[in-house]
Amino acid sequence: MAVSRLPDLALAGPLRRGDVPHLCEQVRTACARAPARDVVCDLAAVTTADLATVDVLARMQLAARRAGSGLRLRDPSPALWALLQLVGLPGLGGLVVEMERQTEQREIAGRVQEAVESGDPAL
């Protein structure tokens, strides 16, 4: 079992455009501490899923790219994850999104569980 490292940044509450200078400075500081390594940003406590939040994250990603690193977003809410996918942010310029969740009962960790109904047509 791989152990994920601690996040460099843990964001909480709503993210607004006024947060950009401070958060980008934190990203640059994290990049300076460990060059050429993704900056891990925990989003589990972020309460907003709107375009202002996406703008903040995109600017943080740009700051990381300019510092020679990438940005790794950990555990965004389902709504924020859907919005990030809608605007096409994951996969661009070093942005990686990690979805963390608990393994369901009787589910084998890391595997997809499929069920077939007897009346399902063959594909």
Rank of each mutant, 00 (worst) to 15 (best):
A82W: 00
E114D: 13
P78G: 06
Q85C: 08
Q61L: 03
R37F: 13
L43A: 09
G18L: 14
V39E: 05
V112K: 05
A30C: 10
L71R: 01
P7E: 11
E104N: 04
R74C: 10
E107L: 07
C24D: 15
V54K: 07
L51M: 12
V96C: 06
A10L: 10
L95M: 13
A109C: 11
L95R: 03
E114R: 08
Q102F: 13
M60R: 01
E100N: 05
A58G: 13
P7V: 11
Q85D: 09
R28D: 15
R66A: 09
V20D: 14
V46G: 09
T48Q: 05
R37D: 15
L9R: 02
P14D: 10
D19Q: 12
D75H: 07
R72G: 03
D19S: 04
R74Y: 05
G18S: 15
D50H: 11
C24I: 12
E98C: 07
R74H: 07
H22F: 10
V97R: 00
A79C: 01
G13F: 02
Q85T: 03
D55N: 14
D75N: 15
L86Q: 10
A30M: 11
A109D: 05
V116A: 04
L95K: 01
C31K: 00
L15S: 11
V3T: 06
A10Q: 14
A79E: 07
D38V: 08
A58D: 14
R28M: 14
C31R: 03
G110R: 02
A64S: 01
R37I: 14
H22K: 12
A12I: 03
L43V: 01
P21V: 10
A52S: 12
S69F: 06
